[in-house]
Nucleic acid binder design. Structure first.
Lengths: 355, 355
DNA sequence: CTGAAAGCGCTTACAG
DNA sequence: CTGAAAGCGCTTACAG
């Protein structure tokens, strides 16, 4: 029987200790690089670990040293649709997630994902449960009320993503305001468009709110008009963008010279709808996006947009959280710079393409 | 001071108990719905919990009752590329992941993601660490050697995805063989093509191996030739697919009537390369994929392919794992049916389109 | 350098 | 129905 006789239950540090002929304290020290065990001790422990295939129990470690080495991340995601047509929204979250993941890995943390469907009940309970299993929490946008976030934050460090800072919690976001202002300046000053429309995102989104305010302020500063409001209300989806444009066109409304969309998805839908009516982009109407999702550069024409550093957003969220976890303090509102990506849908020539 | 006086350290069950004037045992029972506490007890506990904002510590619960309610999932993913051009590969993993997530959520489990970069060192240690923090492990394809999987599986239940069953571990996969056979029958019997080429995936992939064997066997059964081998070796990427086709064309080789690609990405690259040489799909050369990624139906022409039920794959992986965790036994090799999706790249007319 | 022992925050028989 | 106590598998002062 080549199989080493295994103790009954799951393997514990006691099994390793007895096999190596040392105390559990020594095993622990060797495994964690604490103290300076004698080489002989080290070797015997390591060998026993190898022979037994021992892996320390995470829960016990966590309980003992007060560190789980786990970040909780809760995103909201669509529910049952197996292959939704808005493929990209996924990708987007995925990129943020990757930023978190990469940064976490560097510190030996793993990521506990607690996703929540759009129409799930008791979201707060779910978030709390994830919080109980982690050293800190990264929350996407407005999943739970601000007061709940504050309460939760007294229990475990919390950073919100792309939201508005909430008392007690930390926040990391992109500079929507500056991005939108750069975009407006490009359209108004470089192209001379003086009539813009803002095809909005979901009305309850802080991002949307920030972008709407920025476009209005900057347009005003340069003497341009901006159509905005109920008739222009989309929902961040391509379908929503198309719906708004169709509605506008059907009601016989004259479109502004440039349509600034709340995000790339919306721009995609808008361009579709315009194309169906025989309107050319950018000759008849210029269209811009926001996000710079991967397909943006492959559209016809390639989409002028604002790139948000999503991966850095994720990495920064972890960094801030980690700082709070390990030192007890962390920045409460980090703003990441965005970048104007000029392609052709604004009316620029192919040569000037941003990549 | 509306703020209730908070104990020094983090909140524990003792704080709740003393505030409610009961023992910690009662608090635990109320929280977990064990026993039948008196209504009065229940209420006082619940109120104390609410007032304090108490959330039980996951590590302590796990250690105490031997259940972490966490599934570990380890995928391999690309490393630093911020916005890779092969966007879809992501999505794909994401869909599997969603299946796992949905199924896990239903049982109150959360998902611990421990991703691994393609050129990360000590993958085994990482996988083991994740294993130590979870009740069970879902592993993508061949991340670590079979023997390591077997060893790990003696410690914690393991299910591998889309791989070959490994002793001790469980496995869930799609029916590559049947999918490829259906595809070949369609090409040979329905379209009458008797010369096929198999543009392969990574050579070390079990999936690729299974698909290659299936196409050879089925082609032979129906008297068709299949070109395969070194000159036809891709790597699952669009770039790889394009490279193979270009190489073939440059060497003056005559292409077979239909090119069966190892996956959709490869087909995408192949179609690009064919287009660049002025070859028409499907009139000059038919092309097929495998996977049915979301963009497949939007290609020109829409791609005929085999749909793998990725979300179910994930859900099934969890189900099998959960069964093992809770009952001690689970199926060791589950095969999920695939579906032939006939679109136009095989030569079928638009009307016959699968969705 | 190393071992015996306490303690991390829960759950759950075991008495009452 | 409820409380006192043991125990889950580790880590880490504290002695030696």
């Amino acid at each position: 029987m080549p199989e080493p006789k295994r103790p009954k239950g799951p393997l514990t540090i006691y099994d390793v200790a007895s096999r190596a002929g040392v105390s559990i304290a020594s095993v622990s020290r060797v495994l964690n690089g604490q103290g300076s065990p004698r080489a002989a001790t080290r070797d015997r422990v390591l060998q026993a670990v190898r022979e037994l295939g021992f892996v320390p129990d995470g829960a016990a470690r966590a309980l003992s040293n007060g560190l789980k080495e786990v970040v909780g991340v809760v995103f909201r995601r669509g529910d049952e649709t197996p292959f939704p047509d808005e493929d990209e929204s996924f990708l987007f979250i995925d990129v943020i997630y990757r930023g978190i993941d990469l940064a976490a890995r560097r510190q030996g943390f793993d990521v506990l994902m607690g996703s929540v469907g759009f129409n799930d009940g008791n979201v707060e309970a779910r978030v709390a449960a994830v919080g109980g299993k982690a050293d800190g929490l990264i929350l996407h946008d407005r999943m739970i009320p601000a007061t709940s976030i504050t309460r939760l934050a007294s229990l475990v460090p919390v950073v919100t993503l792309a939201g508005t800072p909430v008392p007690g919690a930390m926040n990391v976001r992109c500079d929507n305001d500056e991005g939108m202002r750069q975009l407006v300046r490009h359209l108004v000053l470089d192209h001379g468009y003086n009539e813009l429309g803002y095809l909005s995102g979901r009305i309850d989104s802080p991002d949307n709110h920030a972008r709407a305010k920025a476009i209005e302020a900057e347009a005003k500063a340069h003497g341009a008009q901006v159509a905005i409001g109920h008739d222009w209300q989309g929902d961040y989806s391509a379908a929503g963008g198309a719906r708004v444009i169709s509605g506008l066109l059907e009601s016989g409304r004259k479109l502004p010279r440039a349509i600034v969309c709340a995000n790339d998805q919306t721009a995609l839908g808008a361009m579709h709808a315009l194309g169906r009516r025989g309107l050319r982009v950018p000759q008849d109407v210029a269209v811009t996006g926001f996000d710079d999702v991967p397909v943006a550069r492959h559209l016809h024409p390639p989409l002028t947009t604002v790139r948000q550093p999503m991966q850095e957003l994720g990495a920064m969220a972890f960094a801030v959280l980690y700082s709070k976890i390990s030192t007890g303090r962390g920045d409460s509102d980090v703003v990441l710079p965005v970048q104007l990506i000029v392609r052709e849908s604004c009316g620029c020539a192919a040569a000037e393409n941003g990549r």
